[in-house]
Computed example of a mutant assay.
Amino acid sequence: MGGRLSRARDATGLTTAELARRLGVKTSTIQAWESDRSQPRANRLTMLAGVLNVSLSWLLHGIGASPADESRSELVQAVSANLKRLRRLHEESGRVIAQIEQDLLRASNSQ
């Protein structure tokens, strides 16, 4: 569990001291949890999951979405949205190019 705790803390950008302060424990306690020298009690586990924005089942057993998985899915969504936007712009550019070509053809035929 210590590795998952450390990973989730890193994903949220918290230091051990900041996490300790939020939970009302000592920094050494967080360090002991992360190195698997001790385990948090049930009430602290629930608080940890909430503060770190992970599910309790992921924190305890590694079951479910990890913080990195959520970040990846957000990245995929952002890239997909940008790709959609780029395709729309590409289509619009094609229409503008076709219109300019027609205008040039009309202008050259009227001379």
Score class of each variant (00 low, 15 high):
M1Y: 01
G2Q: 01
G3P: 00
R4L: 00
L5I: 10
S6I: 01
S6V: 02
S6R: 15
R7G: 02
A8L: 07
A8F: 03
R9M: 08
D10I: 09
D10P: 01
A11E: 01
A11R: 05
G13W: 05
T15D: 04
T15S: 15
T15M: 06
T15G: 10
T15C: 06
T15E: 01
T16Y: 00
T16D: 04
E18T: 00
E18Q: 15
L19Q: 02
L19S: 03
R21H: 09
K26G: 14
T27V: 12
T27S: 10
T27G: 06
S28W: 02
S28D: 07
Q31N: 11
A32K: 12
A32F: 07
W33K: 04
W33T: 00
S35P: 03
D36Q: 09
D36A: 14
D36V: 01
R37L: 14
Q39V: 06
R41W: 05
A42P: 05
A42R: 05
N43S: 11
N43E: 15
R44T: 05
L45S: 03
L45P: 00
T46G: 02
T46M: 04
M47Y: 02
L48A: 04
V51L: 06
V51Q: 12
L52E: 01
V54M: 02
L56T: 13
L56V: 13
S57V: 12
S57E: 14
W58F: 13
L59S: 15
L59C: 13
L59D: 14
L59I: 12
L59F: 13
L60F: 10
L60Y: 11
L60D: 12
L60E: 13
G62K: 12
G64D: 09
A65V: 10
A65D: 14
S66V: 08
P67G: 08
P67H: 08
P67T: 08
A68S: 11
D69P: 00
D69E: 02
E70W: 01
E70P: 01
E70A: 05
S73V: 09
E74F: 05
E74M: 11
L75H: 11
L75I: 10
L75V: 09
Q77C: 01
A78Q: 15
A78C: 09
A81M: 02
N82G: 03
L86K: 03
R87T: 00
R88W: 02
R88D: 15
L89Q: 13
L89S: 10
E91A: 11
E91C: 06
S93Y: 11
S93N: 15
R95T: 05
R95S: 12
R95Y: 08
R95M: 11
A98I: 01
Q99F: 10
Q99S: 15
E101K: 12
Q102A: 15
L105A: 06
L105G: 05
R106F: 01
S108E: 08
S110Q: 15
Q111M: 08
Q111D: 12
Q111I: 09
